[in-house]
């Protein structure tokens, strides 16, 4: 698997080759690898020449790639979950009806409140906030 696009990968390898030209193969390959694994940004004398000449910061590029991949993965996962949720909701609403689906997710107090509003409107011809106000007046000793 390549970290970069094919073109960038090729450019990167060319850059590395160019940086390593005239240099001997590092003698301490095992140590360097261990150092690479254990430290975020190890100082590697054998690669210092390449680092000076190179415009490529390998660690930044790797980090950037990892972040991009994580972001893509998160988006794909979110899109997948959203699409599945939306599909389930649509199927549920279509099969069970909107009222059934909505009230399944509402608490009892909200359902009763909603029903009371319809009852108030049916008894008073008043709706919205006006109906709320009228409710406070019911059973008032001077008004009823």
């Amino acid at each position: 698997m390549m970290f970069f696009s094919e073109n960038r990968n090729k450019a990167f390898l060319d850059e590395v080759k160019k940086g390593l030209q005239g240099q001997k193969k590092p003698a301490r390959v095992k140590e360097i690898l261990c150092d690479l694994i254990e430290n975020d940004k190890p100082k590697i004398p054998e690669l210092s020449g390449m680092a000076k000449n190179s415009k490529i910061d390998i660690f930044d590029m790797v980090n950037q790639k990892i972040k991009t991949q994580q972001r893509k993965s998160a988006i794909n996962s979110f899109a997948g979950v959203s699409f599945s949720t939306l599909a389930i909701c649509l199927i549920s609403v279509s099969y069970f009806g909107w009222g059934y689906v909505r009230d399944t997710f509402r608490n009892d107090a909200d359902v009763v409140n909603s029903l009371n509003r319809v009852e108030q409107a049916s008894q008073t011809g008043l709706s919205g906030g006006v109906a709320d106000f009228n409710t406070l007046l019911l059973e008032d000793p001077f008004l009823t």
Binding site: T124, L126, L137, L143
Partner: peptide, 18 residues
């Protein structure tokens, strides 16, 4: 005649009623 339940709101704002 269908909506007698709105008389309370009418009465509270009617000068002299309360």
């Amino acid at each position: 005649a269908l909506f007698p339940g709105n008389k309370e709101i009418f009465n509270i704002l009617k000068p002299g009623y309360v």
